Simulated assay, not measured.
Amino acid sequence: MKIKNCIYIFAFALFFTSCIPNKDLVYLQKTDKKTNDNEVKEVVAKPYRVQTNDILTINIKALDQKLVEMFNTSTVQNQSQNQNTPQNLYFTGYSVDDHGNIRIPVLGNLNVLGYTLDEIRTTIEKKLLDEYFNSEARLYVTVKLAGLRYTINGEITNPGTNVLYQDRVTIMEAIANSGDITMTGDRRKVQIIRKYPHGYETYTVDLTKDTAIDSPYFYLQPNDYIYIKPLKQKSWGTGTTGVQTISTIITALSLVTTTILLTRNL
């Protein structure tokens, strides 16, 4: 009887510890019960500052487009919107070298390291107006990142490197674009490894709490690496749902019972 009681206790303990609770699966759960569900939260994302190895797309337009053709690469001008693939942008965009410079036709080297996209646009416009054109040319300059590239790995449905053609991308959008975190993924400790001029830094975001939106790392930056850790339930191998866990326990109890009966008969 003592052996049976021990087996039952072990089975119940295994059941309650191996199942993944619902609170570990739901995103952005409300932490403050007093707040209004429709409360508007301020966006804390700061303007992105260009780093080495970034790729920029620069387009210069004017009233007379022939006057600015020499500043634009012919490949970019003739490129249709459907051809803006990561591969094409790699060869036609402006890559920021190790010294923080990009090389623009006619204008030559331009240092962009640590500048925002708007600051780069203003610098190019000023350089063109000072050296080549006047205000009557009606210059129009656009500067964008050639897509926001990120890498996601770990407990994710589709791990790998992806590119989203948006000015801003949240970590929730990146996860959704990669097929969502698996049931055995730890949503409470999502790691973001981010590159800075001085090296790499690692941050942890709890995506089960609505306070994740307030985190400065809720918005991704180019070349971010996202790692989803596995939950302990995966290493235990008892199953992720109640049905799977019960099946595992029944199998284990059957094995133990059979072993006891065979031992007694010997």
Rank of each mutant, 00 (worst) to 15 (best):
T208D: 10
I213T: 08
I213Q: 15
D206Y: 05
P216I: 07
K229A: 15
Y227P: 00
D224F: 03
D210E: 13
D206L: 08
P216V: 05
I213K: 11
T211H: 01
Q221T: 14
Y225H: 07
L220E: 07
D224N: 11
I213S: 06
D206R: 06
Y217F: 15
N223Y: 13
D210I: 01
V205E: 11
T211I: 11
T204C: 00
I228Y: 00
T208S: 08
K229W: 02
I213M: 13
F218Q: 12
I228Q: 01
S215R: 09
Y217W: 14
S215D: 14
F218I: 09
Y219E: 10
L231F: 05
P230T: 04
V205H: 07
V205K: 06
T211P: 04
L231S: 04
Y219D: 07
Y203K: 14
L220D: 03
I228G: 00
D210T: 05
P222C: 06
D206H: 03
Y217R: 14
A212S: 14
Y227T: 04
P222Y: 03
A212L: 08
L220P: 04
D210L: 05
Y217G: 04
L220C: 07
F218V: 08
T208V: 10
Y227M: 05
D224H: 03
Y225A: 09
I228M: 01
D206C: 10
D206T: 06
Y217Q: 15
I226F: 03
K209V: 11
P222H: 02
L231V: 11
Y227R: 06
K229V: 00
D210R: 03
S215Y: 05
V205T: 14
D206F: 03
A212N: 09
Y225P: 00
K229S: 14
T208C: 09
S215T: 15
A212H: 10
D206I: 08
K232N: 12
P222S: 04
Y227Q: 08
I226D: 02
P216F: 07
K209R: 13
D210Q: 07
F218W: 09
L207V: 09
K209M: 13
Y227W: 02
Q221S: 15
L207W: 02
S215C: 11
I226P: 01
P230H: 03
Q221V: 10
P216M: 06
D206G: 07
Q221Y: 11
Y219P: 10
P216A: 12
K232E: 15
P216D: 13
D206A: 04
D214W: 05
F218M: 12
D210H: 09
K232Q: 13
I226Q: 06
K229N: 14
K232M: 13
L231Y: 04
T204W: 02
P230R: 01
Y219T: 11
K229M: 11
Y203S: 12
K229T: 11
Y203W: 10
P222I: 00
I213R: 13
D210K: 03
T208E: 11
I226G: 02
P230F: 02
Y219V: 07
V205A: 04
P222W: 02
D210C: 03
